[in-house]
Computed example of a mutant assay.
Amino acid sequence: MSKSEFWKEMDDVRAAMLGIGSARHVPMSPYPNEKEGVIWFITAKGTDLVKAIEAGETESSLIVTGNGEMHARVEGKSELVQDRKKLEELWNPVASSWFEGIDDPDIRLIRFDPDFAEVWATKGSIGFAIQIAKAKVTDEQPDMGDHFEVRF
């Protein structure tokens, strides 16, 4: 899988687990941008993720699983960004359900810059079922897809 394929798969991810520094991983909606080479998140003031960044912690990891045909562990760095234009670009019904509108003063943007990803590309749930059935009939290990690394 190339970097381009990674970004294409990320476009289909609706939820992933983001952890920053000592802040535990929590479910977040990622907004990947291949052109920028970053993944954006909309969160709120006072969350553990925001507190970690404010305390100077930037080392981050994103866990992607069960979305489409890609499972991944993505490592990188995060920072808080104030960018009204970017917020307007990302704003959507999911984000709006957490805030009192785009002008809510509690809104914070997190910019996640990936450095490295360990990726498992699977054949999806139907492909998984076929491989398991095939393995039972042939007594061979199932082909669960490819495992590789992507550097950014």
Results as ranks from 00 to 15, higher is better:
Gln82Asp: 15
Val50Thr: 08
Ile20Leu: 08
Ile42Arg: 04
Gly68Cys: 05
Asp11Val: 03
Asp104Gln: 11
Ser60His: 00
Asp146Gln: 14
Trp120His: 14
Leu90Pro: 05
Ile132Glu: 11
Ala23Cys: 04
Pro32Gln: 06
Glu5Ala: 09
Gly66Tyr: 11
Leu87Arg: 00
Ile132Leu: 15
Gly101Trp: 13
His71Leu: 14
Ala15Ser: 13
Ile107Leu: 03
Val50Glu: 04
Glu5Ser: 02
Trp98Gly: 03
Val119Phe: 02
His71Arg: 09
Gly21Met: 00
Asp106Pro: 02
Phe152Pro: 06
Glu54Met: 00
Ser2Phe: 10
Met70Tyr: 06
Val94Cys: 04
Lys35Ile: 11
Asp104Cys: 10
Glu34Thr: 00
Asp11Glu: 15
Ser2Glu: 14
Asn67Cys: 13
Leu87Met: 04
Ile110Leu: 04
Phe128Cys: 07
Met144Gln: 10
Pro32Ile: 01
His71Asp: 15
His25Thr: 10
Trp7Leu: 08
Trp40Leu: 01
Ala44Asn: 07
His147Gly: 02
Val26Asn: 00
Met17His: 11
Glu88Ala: 07
Trp98Cys: 00
Ala15Gly: 00
Asp143Leu: 08
Pro32Asn: 03
Gly21Ala: 05
Glu75Gly: 07
Gly37Arg: 13
Pro114His: 10
Pro32Phe: 03
Leu18Gly: 13
Pro27Glu: 13
